[in-house]
Computed example of a mutant assay.
Amino acid sequence: MNRVLGGNLRKEILIISLVGLVFITFMFTTLILEEHWKLSERKYCGRLQEEIINSPEAYNQHTIHAITSTYTRLSQKADLTSLMQTLMHLHNFHCWIVIEDSDEKTALVTKLLKKSGLHYTHLNIKNSEQTKCVKHLQTTNAALAWVRKHIGPDEGVVYFMDDDNTYDLKVFEDMRTTKVASVWPVGLATDLIVEGPALCKDGKVLTWRAVWKPDRKVPIDMSGFALSAAFLRHHPDVYFIDVEPLESQFLADLGLTKDRMEAKANNCTEVNVWHTRTKKYIPHLEDEALKLGPEFNPNVEV
């Protein structure tokens, strides 16, 4: 009887030992395979990264610095929120330079920028009321001066963004390949459906679509061009001046001409930015609503 029990016990111990050995072998093999997979993945990612860096498309990774002048109005928060939501979708977006037409930074813009999660610089300066043609002359030039002082010569491209325009993400990807100065068509500009470069071939602009002052040296809207940071640094004394056409004179003072502009937007066959403008909103019924009492008029920022 004892021999039988002893034999059964030895069999159970043997079975348990075999099961444990199989389990340990399985776990050890799994760990080896996992480490091998991780090593292979790192090697693959390294090769992939190297291929990207060494490829012509690597030039597309240039950073973007966007300058936006803004001023207090009823639609300001709505306009800036729309623009902010667009910029949040961009990769390799380095800095949003927002400059207020104000003697001091406003709480509205400060809070909006803080919650955006974007890398930004918040500036302010009061525009002069003495300018004849350009309302945002001082703000734009102050932002331009900040760019020249703080952004290195090899740090991508600079783009001027109106706070109430509409932008397709593709316009930003296009400008990343800017060597000196790039250009593309702008929708809804200067009372036209589209203005700017019309017929383009092999990255060169052959004809320009412009009716308002068609003899402009570079007939383009502010949102229709981007400049390399290096190029701007090479022209430290060139700023916007109080003349019309503002953009064309600025580009001409930089030494740019129509034939030097680099055509983007699939050889100017696409419109990816629109010069939309928020119509001045007049709340005609607001006085009637205020008469309803405090329970109908909460103190809320719009």
Rank of each mutant, 00 (worst) to 15 (best):
W96D: 01
A143F: 00
Y167L: 08
N272K: 11
I97P: 03
L199T: 15
L256A: 04
V194E: 12
W96L: 01
D168W: 07
M175D: 04
L254H: 01
K217P: 08
L251D: 01
P298W: 00
A230V: 04
A58N: 08
I24R: 11
E34M: 11
F240L: 11
H119D: 13
A265E: 05
L227E: 00
H284R: 15
L292N: 06
V300W: 07
R176M: 02
I99G: 06
L251V: 05
L21F: 13
I193W: 15
L14S: 14
T131V: 03
A210W: 04
V300P: 02
R209Q: 15
L292M: 14
I151Y: 01
P214G: 07
T70Y: 02
D287N: 12
E104D: 11
C133D: 12
T30V: 14
L113N: 07
M261R: 01
D154K: 08
N267C: 04
M88Q: 15
R42Y: 08
K291I: 07
I32H: 05
I97H: 00
T29N: 12
K77G: 06
L292W: 06
V243A: 10
H119Y: 09
E50Y: 00
G156E: 00
S182A: 13
H284L: 14
K11M: 06
D242M: 02
I125H: 06
Y167C: 05
H284I: 14
K105G: 03
I13C: 09
V186R: 05
D103P: 00
N8I: 14
W146G: 06
L33E: 14
H119W: 07
L232T: 03
G187T: 06
D242F: 02
V98D: 04
T121S: 11
L108M: 13
N299A: 12
T121Q: 12
H275R: 12
G7P: 05
Y71P: 07
G293E: 03
E57W: 07
E100I: 04
S69N: 06
L256P: 04
V158R: 01
S248W: 02
I97E: 04
K179W: 07
D103C: 08
P298A: 01
C200G: 02
S223R: 13
Q49Y: 07
L48P: 05
T131M: 05
Y281K: 09
D103W: 09
L48C: 00
W146P: 03
A143G: 14
D202W: 01
S82F: 08
G152A: 09
I151V: 15
R216C: 15
K291L: 11
E104N: 10
K126M: 09
M27L: 15
K279A: 09
H91G: 10
H65N: 08
A263F: 00
E57N: 07
V180K: 10
F160S: 08
T178D: 03
A107T: 13
T257C: 10
Q138V: 12
L21D: 12
